[in-house]
Design a protein around this nucleic acid. Sequence first.
DNA 1: GCGATTTGACCTGC
DNA 2: GCAGGTCAAATCGC
Length: 336
Amino acid sequence: MDSNSNTKSIKRKVVDQLVEGYEFATQLQLLLSHQHSNQYHIDQTRLVSGSGSVSGVPDPVDELMSKILGSFHKTISVLDSFDPVAVSVPISVEGSWNASCGDDSTAPASCNGGDSGDSKKKRLGVGKGKRGCYTRKKRSHTRIVEARSSEDRYAWRKYGQKEILNTTFPRSYFRCTHKPTQGCKATKQVQKKEQDPEMFQITYIGYHTCTATDQTHAKTEPFDQEIIMDLEKTLAASTAQNHVNAMVQEQENNISSVTAVGAGMVKEEENTNGDQSKDYCEVSSTGEDLSLVWQETMMFDDHQNHYYCGEISTTSHQFGFIDNDQLSSLFDSYCA
DNA sequence: GCGATTTGACCTGC
DNA sequence: GCAGGTCAAATCGC
């Protein structure tokens, strides 16, 4: 074993973790800036009315998040200068990066054997040379949803399809339409279920960092909902969940529930009223999620356009449906 | 003409 | 070496 390559491997893992932390912090910033802006605006308005102007007063949340992100960025930059090879993902100040050098704007010069400029856009001969190097993305922030439609409120662009071993149906690969313009690195994989071809298993990888500027997105996708779905592991959702537990109890007689055993195996439980309603969705988690013993959380079913809340443990997930009114109450009480 | 999809080739990680 | 993920030229559809 080459100690040098081992060191590079370790560095790479460190950088991966830092980059992941950077992304988490970015997402947290989005959440906090959105939630906090409302409250902060109210507070500042009170100050304005009470004791004069507060213009120029920095938002403490933004300030703190900027420091956190800056810290991540500096650390990664230091590692980058220490060993550029170890840093496979060019970091941008805005918190998004391109994990694949197939991206037009930021491909490292090392791609395609060191070619630079527009040479990477050209195919280096059919069947020869590199078709553009890339770093396969780590499976972080993976969310698995089952739905009867593979469509959701985002604009996706299909970039590949693959036959998967021991499966009847091919897997389709989608990336966010806004990737070229906004660097959004969200991707999803869609595959029909073996047992039920009517159902799709949709794996969402990464978060949307694009802004909701397109019409299809904006008209059906309130920002609050996006935040909840994206930050299912956050304390925000956990804390907020406490406020709706009682309300959810009232709903439980009217819903189906799903228990996910492990990370993907699903057992549907009989509804109390015997109704095999399909009004549920399933979530599976990455390994790191499963390290949690119990976690109260929320999730959003894109297809059903419903929120579910419930508990996640290392061995099972249970969710119950909550309606929009409950969701509003939840947010009101949480943000109060 | 342009954007989306298809599909075979290429690349990476295990 | 293999399976899965991604690229990018070719093709399609509006």
